[in-house]
């Protein structure tokens, strides 16, 4: 590095300015080597992504092809499609898969119906200085333990519990079962629907609503013709959360679902009681495939940019 010499204190070579410590020299070296810089930045996250994330997914798919020796209970590492054949042909698994998708869809619709007016109030009606607090209020339940919230609902929905009492005596509430599962899941995942819709509405300029009113449209029409079309991507973004979280859930259904079986608790049962890890892995690929299909379907709507 031959730089033109500015005659400074005697003896100090220009490149070895005493003010430049080793850290500075390293920074300067990194500045000149963009590749090294990028590698240093991405090494840890890439390691995590490949080993922990893609690795786990690969293990899932590979082990789904194994079987368990029914006599010894040992895993037979011989790739076959037996597990998938069982799932495809056995009536029970098809019913459970459909029920799970239906549950996830019901939760998503319920959340969207509740979230739309709430998010609209937060983004367009409430005064700007209260908005931040409303967002905090929406987020607060997420800080509480999932289990605590699910068990709170178990108490609420118990036979003769508060919900029964509100609806007019023991037995008049939904009790434990599929309805209760949908209700509780909708409650648990509601924030994940509100927040994207809120963000979408906040980006919707007020002047669009005013222009619609100005051209003669009343509130209902403005909502249907201007607000809804513009925030559809946000709703889909929220639905990706609520749908996938509901599809994978196995705790809520155990707490308030009664005898209801969803994919989640079937996987859980096969890991625990049945000790059939390969079959559990095969079952677990169902929601993964459904979600991949869902993401591909909504990709065109622009929802993925809203995440």
């Amino acid at each position: 590095m031959a730089t033109p010499t500015l005659d400074r204190s005697a003896g100090a070579a220009p490149a070895e300015d005493p003010a430049r410590g080793p850290v500075r020299r390293l920074s300067a070296w990194l500045h000149r080597h963009a590749g090294v810089r990028l590698a240093a930045l991405l090494a840890a996250p890439l390691f995590w992504l490949v080993v922990a994330y893609l690795g786990a997914l690969a293990v899932l798919f590979v082990s789904a092809l194994w079987t368990v020796n029914g006599f010894t209970g040992e895993v037979v590492r011989q790739p076959t499609l037996t597990n998938f054949r069982t799932i495809a042909t056995d009536e029970v698994y098809r019913t459970v898969a459909l029920r799970s998708v239906g549950t996830a869809a019901a939760v998503t619709v319920l959340d969207a119906l509740v979230a739309l007016p709430m998010a609209f109030y937060m983004a367009k009606v409430a005064r700007p200085r209260y908005r931040r607090w409303l967002v905090v209020a929406i987020l607060t339940p997420l800080w509480a333990s999932y289990l605590v919230k699910a068990y709170a609902w178990r108490v609420l929905l118990a036979n003769g519990g508060p919900v029964d009492w509100l609806l007019g005596g023991p037995g008049s509430g939904p009790g434990y079962g599929l309805t209760a599962t949908v209700l509780v899941l909708a409650y648990l995942w509601l924030p994940y629907m509100i927040l994207p819709i809120y963000a979408g509405l906040e980006r919707l300029p007020d002047s669009l609503l005013e222009a619609s009113a100005d051209l003669g449209a009343r509130a209902g029409r403005t909502f249907r013709k201007v607000v809804l079309p513009v925030i559809v991507p946000s709703v889909i973004a929220g639905s990706i959360f609520t749908f996938s979280l509901s599809l994978g859930d196995y705790i809520t259904v155990q707490i308030v679902g009664g005898k209801t079986q969803l994919i989640g608790n079937l996987v859980y049962a096969n890991i625990g009681a049945a000790n059939n890890l390969p079959f559990a892995a095969a079952l677990a690929t169902i929601p993964v495939l459904i979600m991949v299909g869902y993401l591909v379907a909504v990709r065109r709507s622009g929802a993925l940019e809203e995440l």
């Binding site: 002047s207 005013e210 222009a211 009113a213 100005d214 051209l215 079309p229 513009v230």
Partner: peptide, 20 residues
């Protein structure tokens, strides 16, 4: 009266065209 009940129309500063 509400905006939709008035016989006036507005050209907005940001135009407020419906993007969809």
């Amino acid at each position: 009266l509400a905006p939709f009940e008035r016989d006036v129309n507005t050209v907005f500063q940001d135009y407020a065209l419906f993007p969809h």
